[in-house]
Design a binder for these strands. Structure first.
Lengths: 161, 161
DNA sequence: CTAGAAGTTCCAGTCGCTGGAGGATCAAGA
DNA sequence: TCTTGATCCTCCAGCGACTGGAACTTCTAG
């Protein structure tokens, strides 16, 4: 049996995240020591690894929930799993296409800069005038997992002078 | 001058989002009617359009804040704008590469399914055993803007039987 | 005059975590 | 035995970029 920190080390999932998964119901409440510390079995560590791979492949927690359900009921037909994967693949392909279009647009933008003042800046200009855009790019992206320190960021609902 | 609804229609940004941008400080508090309704000038509508294009190109609000700053100070050098765009482009390229790797992995996964029971399912199996993965895919993706109705989703902190 | 559309503010929820506060417990060394 | 420091516990707020609902007011057309 592993303490949460050991389980974290083995799976590459942070302890806080493991607790979060438990709360989300992806993991049954584990055994506890007399003092209340969580204890994980090998099976539970494998389950965590499964979740990690699912996440690494970009599946949402809801999808992973469904996939885990299949793990828990190995006699069910695996159609669901395949459908989830298919749906996800289609999604990834769409995003890929959008991102590719975006990249082209951005490259044009970056190449167009000739320095100088903002008033003449093509980047600024292009943003102001969408007619310059070739494609119908439609924001495919919220950032992945940005590791920003959130220093100095304007907080909502405060100090709007 | 436009009411918020008209500004929304002209820019393609929802009224709620326009208010949100105001609160975020991307837009100065607009003029108001005697009864307190917001009124937008053409210049403000253009500013909103600028924001929309920036978002469509995947810039974060913080980036757009900086870009708007340049719009407001047209005598500044546009180096900042170009740097922001460049940084963003690099980011997009990275994401593109990750997504491409992911697509390959997912395609393999989907193709591998031969039907049958979950116990024999290759999809499930592959997730359980990362050794089967070819690449070092590392989740590039939170979903773009999912238009889920949030029906039936398990809520946190409730009914964990 | 009245219905309904459109506006207002405020606040909670989304997704998948992350990190801090404030405390309890554990393992190892002096 | 004592003490330090690592690890654990629960609870809760925050991230980014919105979205939507409640409860209210105001505008507009018939």
């Amino acid at each position: 049996m592993y303490a949460i920190g050991q389980a974290a080390e083995r799976t590459g999932i942070k302890a806080t995240t493991i607790r979060f998964y438990e709360e989300e119901g992806l993991l049954a409440p584990p055994a506890r020591t007399a003092s209340g510390r969580r204890l994980y079995s090998d099976a539970e560590v494998r389950r965590l690894t499964f979740i990690r791979h699912g996440r690494a492949l970009g599946f949402e927690l809801d999808d992973i929930r469904s996939l885990l359900d299949l793990v828990d009921h190995p006699d069910d037909a695996c159609d669901d799993a395949n459908q989830i994967a298919r749906r996800h693949l289609a999604d990834v392909e769409l995003r890929l296409a959008q991102l590719a279009a975006l990249k082209i647009e951005l490259s044009r933008l970056v190449r167009s800069c000739i320095g100088g003042k903002a008033a003449q800046c093509r980047v600024i200009e292009a943003l102001a005038d969408h007619a310059q855009c070739k494609s119908d790019h439609d924001s495919p992206q919220p950032k992945p997992r940005s590791r920003k320190k959130a220093q100095g960021r304007r907080r909502r609902r405060t100090a709007r002078k």
